[in-house]
Computed example of a mutant assay.
Amino acid sequence: MMRIRALPVAGPWAVDIAIALLVQAAMTMPFVVPRSPELAPATWAAYGLTTLTVVPLVWRRRAPVAVLLAILAASALYKLAVEGPGQPLPYTGLVIVYTIAAVSPPPKRLATILLLVVAVPVSVWLNTRSARELTFSLFVFAAAYVFGRLTDARQRAHRIEAEQAAARERARIAREMHDILSHAVSLMIVQAEAGPVAVRTAPERAEAAFDAISETGRDAMVQLRRMLGVLREDGDDGGPQAAGDAPREPQPGLDGLPELVRRVRGSGLDVAYEVTGEVRPLPAHTEATAHRVVQEALTNVVKHARAATVRVRLAYEEDLLRITVTDDGRGPGPGTGKPGGHGLIGIRERAAAHGGTGHTGPGPDGRGFEVGVTLPLGP
Rank of each mutant, 00 (worst) to 15 (best):
Ala46Asp: 00
Val301Ala: 10
Glu370Phe: 01
Gly93Met: 06
Gly235Arg: 14
Ala42Gly: 13
Trp59Glu: 11
Arg3Val: 09
Ala119Gln: 10
Leu52Glu: 08
Glu317His: 04
Thr135His: 06
His178Ser: 07
Leu257Ser: 09
Gln223Asn: 10
Leu69Gly: 05
Gly244Thr: 11
Glu163Arg: 15
Leu114His: 01
Val294Asn: 07
Arg232Lys: 14
Glu163Asn: 15
Leu320Tyr: 03
Gly361Arg: 04
Val33Met: 13
Ala202Ile: 03
Glu38Ala: 14
Ala192Leu: 15
Met188Phe: 10
Leu7Tyr: 11
Ser123Val: 09
Thr289Ala: 15
Ser104Leu: 04
Leu52Phe: 09
Leu320Asp: 05
Ala167Lys: 08
Leu134Asp: 00
Arg200Glu: 15
Ser75Glu: 14
Val54Asn: 08
Thr276Trp: 03
Ala171Asn: 12
Arg313Gly: 02
Ala157Glu: 06
Arg367Ile: 12
Asp234Ile: 02
Val95Asp: 06
Gly195Asn: 14
Arg149Lys: 05
Leu260Met: 10
Ser75Trp: 14
Ala153Asp: 07
Glu249Met: 12
Leu21Gln: 05
Tyr91His: 15
Leu269Glu: 01
Arg367Phe: 09
Asp234Pro: 13
Ala18Val: 09
Gln164Arg: 14
Ala198Val: 10
Met221Trp: 11
Ala101Pro: 01
Leu320Pro: 03
His359Phe: 07
Pro283Lys: 08
Met1Ala: 14
Pro37Arg: 10
Leu257Cys: 08
Ala194Val: 06
Gly329Ala: 02
Arg172Gly: 11
Asp152Ala: 14
Arg265Asp: 00
Pro240Ser: 08
Lys79Trp: 10
Pro34Asn: 02
Gly256Ser: 15
Leu254Met: 07
Val199Leu: 10
Ile347Trp: 07
Gly331Thr: 06
Ile4His: 12
Ser36Trp: 11
Arg5Met: 09
Val279Tyr: 06
Ala184Trp: 09
His183Arg: 13
Glu38Pro: 08
Val185Ser: 04
Thr286Ala: 11
Ala305Asp: 09
Val122Glu: 06
Gln251His: 11
Glu249Asn: 05
Pro34Asp: 01
Arg129Gln: 14
Pro203Gln: 08
Val373Cys: 03
Ala220Val: 06
His342Asn: 13
Ala81Cys: 13
Ile4Leu: 12
Met188Gln: 13
Ala208Leu: 13
Ala20Phe: 08
Thr50Lys: 04
Met29Cys: 07
Leu150Thr: 11
Gly256Arg: 15
Arg367Ala: 13
Ile323Asn: 00
Glu287His: 01
Gly268Lys: 03
Val222Met: 10
Gly363Ser: 08
Pro332Trp: 00
Val58Ser: 00
Ile323Phe: 00
